[in-house]
């Protein structure tokens, strides 16, 4: 089963995603695909918190900030992949080079769709950043449209689509694993 999970900040996405991934994996391989490339102490602290959160749950961590399909070079496709998050992946793809990559959204969308099709079980986490009253600059708006493109591609490809609100899952498509 493949699951796409998004929602606002601090609504319980990561914690539900971990639970779902553990349930999907059963006795099989369980991978945590870490997409954040830390740039400062705040990032490193956040990563340490997430590592501590999932300690003892049986995840093997694969660090992959870009080119998500490379994850499958070394991992077992029959396993279960928790990818957290599309937001960080797109950030890396879009802003890693010397110039802003305007094609990053389309590339992330097609890479993620192919990734989801290639694996047995996946939980893909993103962030809903689309409902504030702000007129953004061109670059921020490009990032928002690109993330939405990647999100919609994941949602179309996954069996189950969930929005987390205050720790409560709203299910738009499919169902939760047993």
């Amino acid at each position: 089963m493949t699951i796409f999970l998004s929602g606002g900040a601090k609504n319980g996405k990561s914690s539900l995603a971990q639970d779902l991934a553990v349930r999907l994996a059963g006795d099989g391989a369980l991978y945590y695909v870490a997409t954040m490339i830390p740039v400062d102490e705040e990032d490193r602290q956040r990563i340490r918190r997430h590592v501590a959160d999932r300690a003892g749950m049986g995840f093997e961590t694969i660090e992959c900030g870009r080119h998500i399909f490379d994850v499958l070079d070394s991992a077992d496709r029959n396993g279960t992949f928790l990818l957290d998050s599309v937001t960080a992946l797109l950030m890396n793809e879009m802003f890693a080079g010397s110039h802003i990559d305007k094609q990053a959204g389309e590339r992330c969308a097609s890479d993620l769709a192919a990734f989801i099709r290639s694996v047995n079980n996946a939980v893909i986490v993103s962030d809903a950043i689309y409902s504030d009253a702000e007129r953004y600059d061109e670059i921020t708006e490009l990032y928002r449209t690109s993330l939405a493109m990647a999100d919609r591609a994941c949602a179309a490809e996954c069996d189950t689509v969930i929005e987390m609100v205050a720790g409560q899952p709203i299910i738009y498509k499919g169902g939760l694993p047993e």
């Binding site: 689309y130 409902s131 504030d132």
Partner: peptide, 21 residues
């Protein structure tokens, strides 16, 4: 568009926009 979920905008124009929407 739902524009109701962000931080209260700094600009009075956008605050009013959020309310009116």
């Amino acid at each position: 568009d739902d524009v109701s979920c962000g931080v209260v905008p700094m600009s009075a124009r956008l605050r009013l926009w959020r309310n009116e929407t």
